[in-house]
Design a protein around this nucleic acid. Structure first.
Lengths: 262, 262
DNA sequence: AATCAGTGGTTCGATTATAGAACCAAGGAG
DNA sequence: CTCCTTGGTTCTATAATCGAACCACTGATT
């Protein structure tokens, strides 16, 4: 039993993305197929509450400062800034590459925190970016620890989207099996061209997969060999991180993980 | 005309703060004085939509990963990561201190972005923190450019809260006047003990005050003299920033600025 | 200048989702 | 076992929402 009005309101919020960060009233109501009166009432409510900002000149709506505040609440609660970030920073200093924290959420991976290396050429910022689990070391290493049935359905998706790095379902599933066996994953140019990454898994207190930690940098500096040299640094610090993550409990919806046991 | 249901839903969201990041159902409904049925329906709606996460063990609710994503939308839209951050980084490198972007919002100031210096002792992270305009250089320099009537009411508030750095309303208003004349503000130990800051104002395309940019560091390294030496660096780069901010249009509610003209 | 199509915003009665008391089942504490 | 609390559900009177029709305005097009 859930509130129809709030449900609609959140669907409206969902329309504000990196690709389409601003919306006019009529434009938005067309997009989500709602009567413009409803959209108007909800938009002004969001505006009154400081969640949306309506540009008085263009009359277009956009997400407000409120979300910077709420992001802070999440980060503080997860101890990202005070505990997790320092560990990531140390890895970044020792490896000389950017460090990425990815969290499993709703059958997708979200970049939750990126600590950049001090090098001139480095992994670009994309915090908050959400994408499918079949692409990129940071995501594939998570996929490798999911139940086989989930792996199948997600790999099927990848095949359906004809992802360039998937030759066939079978070879990709075997690839995931190897990743799980060796406990890390390397990839080149999957999520971003010219970027390579090396990732290890993160687990919660029940030893269920929670996300991954990766080092990422330009291909020419992070070949498979070079990243295998840096792997021990990553693995060593991840031990510390896993000890912390066992207690923290990320707000990461992973219902599908337990579904099969019910 | 605004939606009562959505309004309630957002009031519920507002209860999730850095101080109280998790809530049980009954506990929360007591806090905000709402029937627990309503709260329950709204909470599950938020949960279904990925905005809240309900810890299955403790049955307590907390903000979800969604807010990290939405924060990213705001930052991307404001060009914070790609345009503003590099400028802040340059100031941080040249001055050796942390750089803070503060935005005026609803008669308060919000720390929107902090670029940390590379020094060991540095300004702690507090992105998203919101506070009154009468305290701290970053906030006072904003206050100094607001209409006098607003200044009066906000300073009255400060006096009412018996802020330690306000001796009397009159002297504080004269202090603000000097700040506006010289175009910058220095403070020591107001927002955080042991932290000093030096701030300059930021304006939008209509030359209305939008926020401030500050360098912040430990008192012993950032005396008034030392910060006046670094001031030219700050001012030089802020010229660039103001040229950009004139076009960007921050989602910063500042209705009270124009109210008096209507 | 008149028309038209678009915009954001408002009104008001019919409709429908919501409010909230009363209700479970479960889990401590005594 | 009782008492109190918890999260969660049910049901109907009631109150909020829905949405067609409406303004006022802007900017092309004729």
């Amino acid at each position: 039993m859930s509130s129809k009005t709030v449900d609609k309101a959140l669907s409206i919020l969902d329309a504000f993305t990196v690709e389409t960060p601003t919306w006019g009233l009529r434009e938005l109501s067309r997009q989500i197929d709602m009567n413009h009166t409803i959209v108007h009432r909800i938009l002004t409510t969001f505006e009154d509450k400081g969640y949306l900002y309506c540009n008085p000149e263009t009359k277009k709506y956009e997400l407000g400062i409120k979300f910077i505040e709420l992001n802070n609440v999440v980060e503080e609660h997860l101890n990202i800034s005070s505990i997790i970030q320092p560990i990531m920073k140390e890895i970044a200093l020792k490896t000389g590459e950017s460090v990425v924290l990815t969290i499993l959420n709703e059958e997708e991976g979200v970049f939750v925190k990126i600590v950049e290396s001090e090098q001139k050429v480095r992994f670009a910022e994309s915090v908050g970016k959400r994408s499918s689990l079949y692409i990129g070391a940071s995501h594939k290493v998570i996929l490798a620890y999911l139940p086989l049935e989930i792996q199948h359905s997600i790999v099927d998706e990848g095949v359906a989207h004809s992802a360039k790095h998937i030759k066939s379902k079978e070879t990709f599933l075997r690839h995931l099996e190897r990743v799980r066996e060796q406990g890390w994953c390397y990839s080149e140019g999957e999520t971003f061209d010219d970027v390579a990454a090396c990732s290890v898994p993160l687990f919660d207190n029940k030893y269920q997969i929670l996300g991954s930690l990766s080092i990422a940098g330009p291909k020419y500096r992070l070949s498979q060999e070079q990243s295998e040299e840096k792997l021990p640094i990553l693995q060593e610090h991840v031990k510390k991180l896993n000890a912390i993550l066992g207690k923290v409990n990320f707000p990461s919806r992973r219902n599908f993980l337990t579904k099969k046991f019910i």
